[in-house]
Design a protein around this nucleic acid. Structure first.
Lengths: 143, 143
DNA sequence: TTGCAATTGATTGAATACAATTAAATTATC
DNA sequence: GATAATTTAATTGTATTCAATCAATTGCAA
């Protein structure tokens, strides 16, 4: 029995998770570049389309990002005119992010993206549901 | 029926994939930092422990990384003394990466890492197998 | 042989990621 | 009310990640 068996790449669960994540994100680029969005900006906009207005902290929590990532991310979205950033007058520590009209307009162009990318991953309905469930199980435990 | 349903974060498969990947990689840092390795360096060393010697191109293929990532990665591993980088005399375009004694020694210290991290992800054996299978299915299709 | 296409690693530039720290604002405690 | 503890965004520094491009080498075909 090989004591190094557990160190083989093929015996890792994390590695295909890491690699598949990057490959799938890469699949978005052809579509997102037409919208002048990166993947991270895209999922941030998804939150904005749902929430309209949200604190920076809450957005970070939703996306599992910390301030080192979302601070420049939000500045970039603001510079594109998709969101506005304002301090909460009740508590100046809070940064309130609000979607702009241009941000709303972008949703019309983004509406096809999930379908187009979804057709690139060939999992059955059952597999997709099982995968979804296990990924959130992993995320849930790490909260 | 909401025409924007597909744009909701909770309806994405890619997002939990992306987030779970980052969270799991993050779990490695406490253990890997003791070995002075990042996660990417760690999986590169996994390949080296299996192959002893491999071309840069082949290593990139195994890890789904392109030269923009593996060139600085391999230079970093070389600067730590874990691998050596030499041109193939038969074809000077090829870079041959070979593990050093120090690289072998590191394997002894790394042997516990998979067990320690594995105990942080609480999936049943069946779930882990199913997850593994679906992730490689995604990777396989994108080859 | 000569020149062109293909291969391969390196480089560049932009955008993440995240740990660690800092700074500002607020809340709690005495 | 003064001060300590907490919360939050911002900053800094390091390490990816990848698209696009470049440069060197090789192999093949005319």
């Amino acid at each position: 029995m090989d004591k190094y068996q557990a160190l083989k790449l093929e015996n890792q669960l994390c590695f295909p998770l890491y690699a598949a994540s990057r490959e799938v994100v890469k699949m978005y680029y052809p579509y997102l570049s037409k919208l002048d969005l990166t993947y991270t900006q895209y999922i941030a906009m998804m939150v904005m389309w749902e929430e309209e207005s949200i604190s920076s902290k809450e957005l970070g929590k939703r996306l599992y990002l910390d301030s080192g990532t979302f601070t420049p991310l939000l500045k970039s979205l603001e510079s594109k005119g998709l969101v506005s950033r304002e301090r909460d007058t009740k508590d100046e520590r809070n940064l309130i992010v609000t979607i702009t009209q241009k941000g709303w307009d972008l949703r019309e162009k983004a509406v096809d993206v999930p379908v187009k990318v979804g057709s690139c991953v060939h999992l059955s309905k059952e597999e997709a549901i099982a995968l979804y469930s296990m990924l959130y199980k992993i995320l849930g435990e790490l909260k």
